[in-house]
Design a protein around this nucleic acid. Structure first.
Length: 250
DNA sequence: AACCTGCTCAACCGCACGCTG
DNA sequence: GCAGCGTGCGGTTGAGCAGGT
């Protein structure tokens, strides 16, 4: 019987826990000069007694150039809330919208700052009835994004399940102009995922008012605009009242 | 001062997925 | 189709710290 002979890597006791400045420097200088095509070999080649995963995490979260080290500001907080309301706990995808921030950072920030705030606001929304104009709702969406759009989430840890509501309810503001305003306001010309040259009602997008999956599916297929277009069409076709929008259910 | 409690955040763990042979 | 491997992601842990009693 043939037996596969595993390639024995030199068994060194692998360090765990916090990284020392020396380890950081070794990893940084190695990656800057050699890259990281294979993380499993990085620690060996860099002379680190760590595993590849640990090196990768350290690089992505702390050593990678371009990372912001300051506190998450109000604008970024808003973005997190907005995308969390539609993507759920897809931290890496949310992080894509926040240059210089890592998924780990966002995840931590959510659990330490935003989760309570979010749950509190959800309770508040159910306890209060409000009336507002379309314009103010757009502004509200920008300031309190969870009130604007709520998409069903596939994952078990979705916020909709946390709050036991919003099941299969696509909340929207009161018409296409709101959707248009929201998305055009949200995605500026500098946003990599938004193409201002595309007309939201043109034939470049499939004219079906169905959201077939989270934005991630559209990212994978390379047409994120289709996702937002679908959202807009659903908003346009809906006859939900403002209360439905705000409370996320009929 | 000592203890308790809650919070923050860096890091680890386990799982899923994609690629390759 | 399957196994092995590497990578990425989300959940969880635990050390350190601050504030309260």
């Amino acid at each position: 019987m043939l037996k596969t002979i595993a390639v024995e890597r030199p068994k060194q006791r692998q360090r765990k826990g916090f990284w020392s400045p020396e380890e950081d420097e070794k990893l940084r200088s190695f990656i800057l000069s050699h890259g990281h095509s294979c993380w499993t070999t990085v620690p060996i080649k860099a002379g680190l007694q760590r595993n590849g995963k640990s090196c990768r995490l350290r690089w992505i979260n702390y050593l990678r150039p371009g990372l912001k080290r300051d506190m998450i500001n109000a604008e970024e907080e808003e973005i997190i809330l907005t995308f969390h309301s539609s993507l759920g706990n897809k931290w890496s995808r949310i992080a894509k919208f926040l240059p210089g921030r890592t998924d780990n950072e966002i995840k931590n920030y959510w659990h330490s700052h935003l989760k309570k705030k979010w749950l509190k606001s959800q309770k508040l929304q159910h306890a209060t009835s409000i009336s507002t104009s379309s314009e103010s709702l757009v502004a509200c969406g920008r300031r309190n994004p969870q009130t604007l759009i709520s998409l069903p989430e596939k994952t078990s840890s979705s916020p909709s399940q946390e709050s036991n509501d919003n099941n299969n309810n696509y909340s929207c503001s009161s018409g296409p102009e709101i959707a248009r305003l929201f998305f055009s306001e949200w995605f500026t010309s500098s946003d990599p995922y938004f193409d201002h040259s595309s007309n939201l009602t043109d034939s470049n997008h499939i004219q079906t008012p169905n959201i077939q999956g989270p934005v991630s599916d559209y990212e994978e297929s390379g047409d994120v605009n289709q996702f937002y277009y679908n959202e807009m069409v659903m908003m346009s076709n809906s006859n939900w009242t403002l209360n439905d929008v705000v409370f996320g259910s009929k």
